[in-house]
């Protein structure tokens, strides 16, 4: 891991730190919202350590706190997290084998996958993935504990515009990949599909259906026949 730290360029390290910090603030709100919604202290803390997937955690707590079935909340959460299968296929080379595979998979998030995809060399991809993943894990869990204990300090992160910051973070990270015309076409088509079905389908499914956009993926340099 020591070499991983040295590989990281200072500018990239600063960008990663900023994302970790922002995730920590969202963690604060998650802890506070959960306890404010009537759940025991251990619920948000256990979920953040064991599940460690923000969107599905918010969804789970929202359903259970509103009196919904924990089973329905679990199914909804799994649906939202299903995109990780595709992420895992894309970044398996940076995760590695043995204990690294288990730990590296657990710290997989939208953010560190996006950071990794933005790097050219394998060692840089690996460094960005691991440092960002572990950093978010630490900040998120610390934020959740503080938020759950403090109760109603920050329940509305919208007031700080954090809800706009997160899509902007991911957009900035995928923008270099979108310079490629074929990728851009696929991403645009997929986004249109996801937006079109959002009013009708449960959370998580629209983003998954965006993979339909791959039908429009025509890479320029195809030498061998398909």
């Amino acid at each position: 891991m020591r070499s991983t730290w040295r590989t990281l360029d200072p500018g990239l390290a600063r960008d990663i730190a900023l994302v970790c910090l922002a995730d920590g603030v969202v963690g604060l709100s998650y802890g506070a919202i959960s306890v404010g919604g009537g759940l025991d202290l251990w619920v948000p803390i256990a979920m953040s350590l064991l599940v460690f997937a923000g969107a599905s955690q918010f969804l789970f707590v929202g359903i259970v706190a509103a009196g919904g079935s924990p089973i329905a909340a679990t199914v909804a959460g799994l649906l939202v997290n299903s995109r990780h299968v595709a992420f895992g296929l894309a970044v398996s080379d940076v995760i590695g084998h043995g204990w690294r595979r288990a730990l590296g998979s657990h710290v997989m998030t939208d953010e560190n996958v996006a950071f990794a995809l933005g790097q050219d060399e394998l060692r840089h991809r690996r460094a960005a993935y691991w440092v960002c993943g572990i950093g978010i894990f630490v900040c998120w869990n610390a934020g959740v504990v503080v938020g759950a204990l403090a109760g109603s300090v920050i329940t509305d992160t919208d007031a700080f515009g954090l809800d706009a910051a997160f899509p902007a973070v991911l957009l900035a990270l995928v923008l270099p990949s979108l310079k490629d015309k074929a990728t851009r076409t696929a991403a645009l088509a997929g986004s249109v599909v996801a937006l079109a079905v959002t009013p009708f389908l449960p959370a998580g499914l629209p983003v998954l259906l965006a993979l339909v956009g791959l039908l429009f993926y025509r890479p320029a340099r195809t030498l061998e026949p398909a």
Binding site: R83, L89, P167, L170, A194
Partner: peptide
């Protein structure tokens, strides 16, 4: 595929 998912996540 990962980029398409992230882009759709941004859009939604």
């Amino acid at each position: 595929a990962a980029v398409v998912l992230l882009a759709a996540l941004v859009a939604t």
